[in-house]
Amino acid sequence: MTPTPNLFEDLPLASIEEDICVLFERPGVMIERIVSTGQASPPGFWYDQNWTEWVVLLSGAARLRFEDETEDRLFAPGDHILIAPRRRHRVEWTQQDPPTLWLAVHIREEEAPPA
């Protein structure tokens, strides 16, 4: 999908899959708009990324679960979090209507040059 100039325009209708649109990408950084309409991580699945991710919820609602925490986190518009590399997490629930709209910034750290 081609990015629109407004994050809240051209939201897709509900579907089985989340809609992920790359808004910006350069070496070491990628920014995505993610539209969720009731999707959740499959049972037993954990994201285990080797990069840093900053996520902000722009609309809708969601519950995230972190393996190192005992309870889910409820996210409302404006809530954001910085997820460290290798911090296992999953999406437990997303609001379908109105759609849940995320902005995600993926930051890949460059390896330190040899000394």
Rank of each mutant, 00 (worst) to 15 (best):
L103S: 04
W51R: 15
V55W: 02
E53Y: 00
V91G: 03
P42Y: 02
D68P: 07
H80A: 12
G78Q: 05
T4K: 15
Q49C: 09
A76S: 08
F66A: 11
I81W: 00
S59K: 11
R86M: 04
S36L: 03
A61I: 03
I20A: 08
D72K: 09
F8Y: 07
E111H: 13
I81S: 10
A40M: 05
R87L: 10
E18N: 14
H89P: 04
R108N: 11
E109V: 14
I31N: 06
P27V: 07
L57H: 06
F66M: 13
W51T: 08
I34L: 11
L64A: 13
A104E: 03
V105I: 06
H106K: 14
I31E: 06
D10G: 12
H80S: 14
A76D: 01
L7Q: 03
P77E: 04
P77T: 06
N6I: 08
H80R: 13
E92L: 15
R65S: 15
M30F: 00
G78H: 02
L7H: 02
D48G: 09
L82G: 09
D10F: 00
R87C: 10
L57A: 14
E9Q: 12
I34A: 07
R87G: 08
S15D: 13
T100G: 13
E32P: 03
E69F: 01
L11E: 00
T2F: 12
E110R: 15
E17N: 12
W93N: 06
G38H: 01
P27L: 05
L74V: 02
L64W: 02
D97Y: 01
T70G: 12
L57P: 08
V56H: 01
D72H: 10
E109L: 15
D19W: 00
E109T: 12
P43Q: 09
D97I: 10
E32H: 09
R73D: 11
R108A: 14
T37D: 01
F8D: 10
